[in-house]
Design a protein around this nucleic acid. Structure first.
Length: 818
RNA sequence: GCGCGGGUGGCGGAACUGGCAGACGCGCCAGACUUAGGAUCUGGUGGAGAAAUCCAUGGGGGUUCGAGUCCUCUCCCGCGCACCA
């Protein structure tokens, strides 16, 4: 009988929908399992073949958990605010909401055609007022707790998108989205104080089951460093300059100081004779874009003519300005220790500044780095490793000579503390989150500016603050959002005093909606809270979250921030939202290049489904390679999976299902397969799970009939991968539908093992002979069998056996004296 | 430069705590059946050799009875961060 996949797939998709097979039940007695995939942005291009890779993998996991008796929440939604839709609206004049609706419908039907076991009753869309009402509500909470503020700050301004970008959205000095030029502009922006959560975001990582590289990326991004802040007095002045250093132990080696060119004290301290050059240098730096500043790593700088006094030894040290010191980090000023810092060393060499070694490496350590201790002592090379402090004592009670870095640090900080010159200080690379976008298609920020009262939050009762209808979506030239042009919307009354006021016209970035969506799935229709606390308590945290590596620094950090914040407010039950996080590899075009319209190598999932069916598509995407690694699409490779699925169909529809017991061989292969597939799903090693099912199928298809037990087990483990064909075969086996909720087969590890194994005999590590032995034969017995083997006897005759090594079920190695 | 991953047949990739390298699939070769189809079935397929054997997991050293797997040095590729004091 022909395998009419189109008909079968439609039939079962309708069945699942009508019977709500995959509905997640709130407060079920079963153990819960919350399985989450990143929801897509409903772009006009439709589903990419990359989406189903992640969705299929976690669908398989969800389906297996369900069959194992878990109450599974596996939801889907749409991250529907965003720039591409808005740009399309600008081009065509069609309202973004209409475009979004159309795209969402297309995505929905594509997703349904792939047979994912989503609970379709929980679909959410971030641009839906019923949803963004709560995004706005959370913003008001953040404002209430002092974590949202407006500030005039230099931001990254994309000239082509006419939009402010978060630091995270600037890649290589260019706009992440359009690749356009980015420049600095000072604009009033709403900011979220994510830096207040830097430590919690860092500490929270410890106990999470995230891939190591994900943890590493998050913690690098937060960039915590411990050091000290301290004051350097100015020579001939009462002014002080505060520096930040991670190496207070090197204070005796500080031979000059550097301020960022933009540092506020520069003008004040520069001596008249140096003013022209300093001004010139400052001007040059201001002109450079971030990219240019990054490209040119050769050190530049200018001397201000002023001197600071090193607090530990009273030495006068010259003050320079240089663009290798950044205003945005630390205090914008550093003490330079050229002997023990690569950058300072390079700068000192170029400008002939003194290099004073105060840390002697152990000879071994120096040799390992290819350096000699003498050169370090003479200041001819830079030493950043640990060693023994030298030349580091003063008459004022500080003596760190002979100490290592850690001890010297602690002692120096204590000394600074005693004198009120400085103290321990912790810094982060993480910056506050720029939360304003000068755009239309985003959540309006629910704030009103009153002439008398300043910024006033909208009362909760006025949420959602709806986006008004407009005809044009272009940002205004002054950098203002299109909303600024609608006076009927902008002009309002102050919620506090009733006086005339203006609404905020910026909208939120598209990271806003995705920062809490996992909470809304739990209670998507709630009108009185973002989610019911009891339901949150039942479902949270997310047990397994999979998404792209590209979201590791942004989305993952932002959403953890919001969840930790909501937890601090007592609104969600767990501090961390995601227990486990994995990432999938990208699906590349044929030949390993990225899929793109311009390369013409885009594979449309609809075509694959039409040609091969959803089941083949799903299994192929799992078989393509290790889940976490990039994989290139291979049209020929689908043929192998297509053959496998057809073989399954043929075997089960044409071979007699026998009411007999399994043979020992059948029993062994079946238990081995159930074991391997069960374990592989739990670790998402889905390529090897598929391969095992192929092996099993090849075996089963050899016999004249298939015992019922084998057939039923096989169909059940196939179900998560190829659910449509599994349902159909299950029905044909006379079992009640759906197999999707049938019990997952168990296995007996002992039955999965062969009864008889082949033992390899090695002589001096060289393979010699093989013999059969019952599985589990003990070491000594194996050695005895090997030594008595007729082919081994002559090889060892008359020679001294030094040692025998015996590994049960594997091999015996006889080591002879040579 | 720093931090994570990786280098295994013609290709995608297997290989549990060290134990017969190359599972499974693609491709290729031969045969069967058909012969219009990316059809199906059977057998073969790392390299060299007639064979016994020998050589093979980026390269060099090492540990071990035994190394793709552990240690060490080194080369290449991908990703992330990058003048963060």
């Amino acid at each position: 009988m022909d395998y009419d996949f189109a008909k079968i797939e439609r039939k079962w998709q309708e069945f699942w929908q009508e019977n709500k097979t995959f509905r997640a039940e709130d407060f079920s007695r079963k153990k819960k399992f919350y399985c989450l995939v990143e929801f897509p942005y409903p772009s006009g291009d439709g589903l990419h073949v990359g989406h189903p890779r992640s969705y299929t993998a976690l669908d398989i996991l969800s389906r297996k958990k369900r069959m194992q008796g878990f109450n599974v929440l596996f939801p889907m939604g749409f991250d529907s605010f965003g720039l591409p839709t808005e740009n399309y609206a600008i081009k065509t004049g069609i309202h973004p909401a209409k475009i979004t609706k159309k795209n969402t419908e297309r995505f929905t039907s594509q997703l349904k055609s792939l047979g994912f076991s989503f609970d379709w009753d929980r679909v959410i869309s971030t641009s839906d007022p019923g949803y963004y009402r709560w995004t706005q509500w959370i913003f008001l909470k953040l404002y209430e707790k002092g974590l949202a503020y407006k500030a005039r700050i230099p931001i990254n301004w994309c000239l082509s998108c006419k939009i402010g970008l978060a630091n995270e959205e600037v890649v290589d000095g260019a706009c992440e989205r359009c690749g356009g030029k980015v420049e600095k502009r000072e604009i009033e922006q709403w900011m979220l104080k994510i830096t207040a959560y830097a430590d919690k975001l860092l500490d929270g990582l410890k106990d999470l089951d995230f891939l190591d590289k994900i943890k590493a990326q998050q913690s690098n991004w937060i960039g915590r460093s411990e050091g000290a802040e301290l004051d350097f007095g100015l020579k001939n002045s009462k002014d002080k300059i505060r520096v930040y250093t991670t190496r207070p132990d090197t204070l005796f080696g500080a031979t000059y100081m550097v301020l960022a060119p933009e540092h506020e004290l520069v003008r004040r301290i520069t001596t008249p004779d140096r003013a022209a050059e300093v001004e010139e240098y400052r001007r040059r730096c201001a002109k450079l874009s971030d990219i240019e500043r990054q490209e040119n790593k050769e050190k530049t700088g200018a001397f201000t003519g002023a001197y600071a006094v090193n607090p530990v030894n009273g030495a006068d040290i010259p003050i320079w300005i240089a663009d290798y010191v950044l205003t945005s980090y630390g205090t914008g000023a550093i003490m330079a220790v050229p002997a023990h810092d690569e950058r300072d060393f390079e700068f000192a060499r170029k400008f002939k500044l003194p290099i004073r070694c105060i840390n002697r490496p152990a000879p071994g350590d120096a040799a390992k780095a290819g350096l000699s201790v003498e050169k370090v002592l003479e200041g001819e090379v830079c030493w950043t490793g640990d060693g023994e402090l030298i030349n580091s004592a003063n008459a004022d009670g500080l003596d760190i000579n002979g100490m290592n870095i850690a001890a010297a640090k602690a002692r120096t900080i204590a000394w600074l503390n005693e004198r009120g010159i400085g103290e321990k200080s912790v810094k982060y690379k993480l910056r506050d989150w720029v939360f304003s976008r000068q755009r239309y298609w985003g959540e309006p920020i629910p704030m009103v500016h009153c002439h008398d009262c300043g910024w006033v939050p909208l009362p909760e009762s006025e949420l959602p603050l709806l986006l008004p209808d407009v005809d044009r979506y272009e940002p205004c030239d002054g950098g203002q959002s299109p909303l600024a042009g609608i006076s009927g919307w902008v002009d309002t009354k102050c919620p506090k005093c009733g006086g005339p006021a203006r609404r905020e016209t910026d909208t939120m970035p598209n990271w806003a909606g995705s920062s809490w969506y996992f909470l809304r799935y739990i209670d998507p229709d709630n009108n009185s809270a973002f989610a019911d606390p009891e339901k949150l308590k039942y479902w949270m945290p997310v047990d397994w979250y999979n998404g792209g590596m590209e979201h590791t620094t942004l989305h993952l950090l932002y959403s953890r921030f919001w969840n930790i914040f909501l937890h601090d407010c007592g609104l969600v039950p767990t501090s961390e939202p995601y227990k486990k996080r994995t990432s999938h590899g990208m699906v590349l075009g044929e030949g390993g290049e990225k899929m793109s319209k311009s390369r013409g190598n885009v594979i449309n999932p609809d075509d694959v489904v039409r040609q091969h069916g959803a089941d083949v598509f799903r299994v192929y995407e799992m078989f393509i390679g290790p889940f976490d690694q990039a994989a290139a699409w291979d049209t020929k490779g689908i043929a192998g999976v297509d053959r496998f699925i057809r073989k399954v169909w043929k075997t089960f529809t044409e071979t007699k299902i026998a009411e007999r017991r399994m043979t020992r061989d059948e029993e062994r292969i079946l238990h081995a397969t159930v074991k391997k597939v069960s374990e592989d799903i739990d670790s998402l090693d889905l390529n090897t799970a598929v391969s095992q099912m192929m092996i099993c199928m090849n075996e089963l298809s050899k016999s004249a009939d298939i015992p019922r037990e084998a057939a039923e087990s096989f169909v059940r483990i196939l179900c998560p991968f190829a659910p449509h064909i599994a349902e159909e075969l299950w029905e044909r086996l006379g079992r009640p539908a759906p197999v999707s909720l049938a019990e997952w087969p168990g296995f007996d590890a002992n039955l999965a093992k062969a009864d008889e194994v082949e033992i390899l005999v090695q002589i001096n590590g060289r393979p010699r002979v093989r013999f059969k032995a019952p599985a589990g034969t003990d070491k000594d017995a194996l050695v005895k069998m090997a030594m008595e083997n007729p082919e081994v006897l002559p090889a060892i005759a008359g020679r001294t056996v030094l040692k025998t090594v015996s590994v049960p079920d594997r091999l015996v190695n006889i080591v002879l004296k040579t």
